[in-house]
Simulated scan of single mutants.
Amino acid sequence: MPPSTTADESSSTLNRRTFLAAGTAVGGAAVADGLIAGPSLAAPREAATSETPPSGRVSLTVNGERHAAVIDNRTSLLDLLREQFGLTGTKKGCDAGACGACTVLVDGRRVNACLTLAVRLEGAEVTTIEGLAPDEDDDLHPLQQAFIDQDAFQCGYCTPGQIMSGIGCIREGHAGSPEEIREWMSGNICRCGCYVKIVNAVEQAAGAK
């Protein structure tokens, strides 16, 4: 015959069961509260990311034409030229200043447009590849013609940047020899490998040939 259960033991068993049941209920409620509270805790972060970024106004001359624009202060000159002014001749390559495809002239000096903040160019004069021979009936720039004469391109993607950099190189007085041209054009990458012909074209335009 099984041993009888005393009142104390029964009371103790019930207490343990009650405790476990209560603990489960409390834990479930805590999890539920956490799920409910989660979105409210994340709300300030979401609100912060949805704030309008700081903007500024810039007025500059591009290829002889005055432009004014309200832009995000983080906008690069490259994105301003391509996306707002429609001047897509300036190419986006690495977007990190390593390939030179985006080279333009700012106040006569060559710069990587992808690394240049547009908002800092108030009053500047910018020249892009479109500004070298703006009209179809105009003669090509001597370096543009030299690129054709020397067959200095294949896919052509880097060509606008190469030409703008070559013009800057000539103006800076760094086109006295093939070695000097290679050194001062080294920031412009040609993935097709037309370097010899590019140097020949810069030499031709500089009057070295």
Rank of each mutant, 00 (worst) to 15 (best):
G108H: 05
A29M: 09
A124P: 05
C155H: 06
R57I: 15
G131E: 00
N63P: 07
L80F: 08
T88V: 15
C169Q: 01
T6D: 13
I181V: 05
E65V: 14
I163R: 00
A43T: 09
D33H: 12
Q84C: 02
S186K: 06
V196K: 14
T6C: 03
A124T: 04
D79Y: 08
P178L: 04
F147T: 13
L140E: 07
R82A: 12
M185H: 11
C155Y: 12
I167Y: 02
A37F: 07
N188L: 04
I163A: 00
E130W: 00
T159G: 03
A133R: 08
C99W: 07
I148R: 08
G56L: 06
G168D: 00
G38V: 07
L105V: 03
H174G: 11
R171M: 03
T24L: 15
D72F: 01
P3G: 10
A118K: 02
G56A: 12
Q204Y: 00
S165V: 06
A21Q: 12
V26P: 10
G23Q: 15
A124G: 02
L35T: 04
A47Q: 13
T88F: 05
F19M: 11
F19S: 11
T90H: 02
G93S: 15
R191A: 08
L87S: 03
K92Y: 08
T159W: 04
K92C: 11
S76D: 05
T24E: 12
D149N: 15
R66N: 10
R109I: 03
L77M: 08
D107G: 01
N112Q: 12
G34T: 09
L132M: 08
R110M: 01
I148F: 14
H67N: 09
G168S: 02
P3R: 14
G123T: 09
S4H: 12
A96F: 13
C194N: 14
G27S: 05
P2Q: 11
P44S: 09
T128G: 06
E65F: 06
N73S: 10
R17Y: 13
N112F: 07
H67Q: 14
